[in-house]
């Protein structure tokens, strides 16, 4: 395959690919500039001046902090529930064969395959049917439902690569089921669970569509942001919050990538 080394890409392809990537990234970078603009009343470009004073203003806003706290709370609980349910489901589907296995994968994927508005309105009408008052828990209920799939996908992929003979060997050597889980299965799927958990956290932290239906009076950070988008009250604070959200979501994504990259992403290996 010596021709591989000399493989040159057509210039037009290069331009199209680079252009596409720029299209994906420039808008996000623009947020970083706007976070430091001195302009308060409009979205004027170029910014008339640069200042860091909005960072301090945003830091001292109690409504931003309470929205942030609620978002983190909800994301933590939803991730924990999703980790348990997703792992159980993945273990059952990948380790055993039984009637209706395909249906279960479909059921897990359904909450993100259907438009979020349908999940949201369905949950809302169910809550009103049973007179369940809106609270942190109604938000968690919705979030956990669609977070299961991320954990499930990561865990299933790892279970497929984990050889079943490891578990049999552990049992043959006298470990009981719990010991096997603790010493053999968990170390094998640990990083996949961590990655799945981080993605679930990011998904929940960012979710807005379902939350508008299940949230009632409580504002998570995305709900706060949505209100600012519809009725801008203090644009500079929104700019700063947007920048912080970008920075905060990048970290789990990068971490999840480094945790799963070995093996899962071998180029050209296919399925």
């Amino acid at each position: 395959m010596r021709s591989d080394q000399n493989l040159r890409s057509p210039i037009l392809l290069k331009i199209a690919a680079a252009g596409g990537l720029l299209f994906l990234h420039l808008p996000i970078l623009l947020i970083f500039v706007y976070a430091f603009t001195t302009e308060e009343k409009s979205y004027q470009w170029p910014p008339p001046g640069l200042t860091t004073r909005w960072l301090a203003v945003a830091w001292n806003r109690p409504d931003v902090w309470s929205a942030l706290t609620l978002s983190v709370q909800v994301a933590c609980i939803a991730t924990a529930i999703a980790l348990v349910l997703g792992t159980l489901c993945a273990a059952a589907v990948s380790q055993t064969k039984f009637f209706g296995r395909e249906a279960i994968s479909l059921l897990v994927i359904l909450p993100i395959a259907l438009p979020g508005i349908i999940t949201g309105i369905a949950l809302r009408s169910a809550f009103s049917l049973f007179d369940i008052p809106f609270s942190v828990w109604t938000i968690v209920l919705g979030h956990a439902t669609f977070c299961v799939v991320v954990v499930y996908n990561n865990a299933v992929a790892r279970f497929r690569r984990t050889s079943g003979s490891l578990i049999e060997a552990s049992m043959d050597l006298g470990a009981d089921g719990f010991q096997t889980f603790r010493h053999v299965i968990l170390p094998n799927i640990g990083t996949a669970l961590l990655a799945g958990g981080m993605l679930a956290f990011a998904l929940s932290f960012d979710e807005v569509i379902v939350t508008t239906f299940t949230g009632g009076q409580q504002a998570t950070l995305p709900i706060w942001m949505l209100e600012e988008l519809i009725r801008p009250r203090q644009r500079p604070v929104t700019n700063v919050v947007a920048m912080v959200v970008v920075l905060v979501t990048f970290l789990p994504i990068l971490a999840a990538y480094y945790l799963t990259r070995d093996g899962d992403q071998i180029a050209g290996s296919g399925k």
Partner: peptide, 24 residues
């Protein structure tokens, strides 16, 4: 992956900045 996973609302907000009449 980074644009895929970065906040949906922030992405929309970025475009509100870009497409505004006084924008870039």
């Amino acid at each position: 992956m980074l644009p895929l996973w970065s906040s949906y609302l922030v992405k929309i907000y970025a475009w509100k900045l870009i497409l505004a009449k006084e924008g870039i």
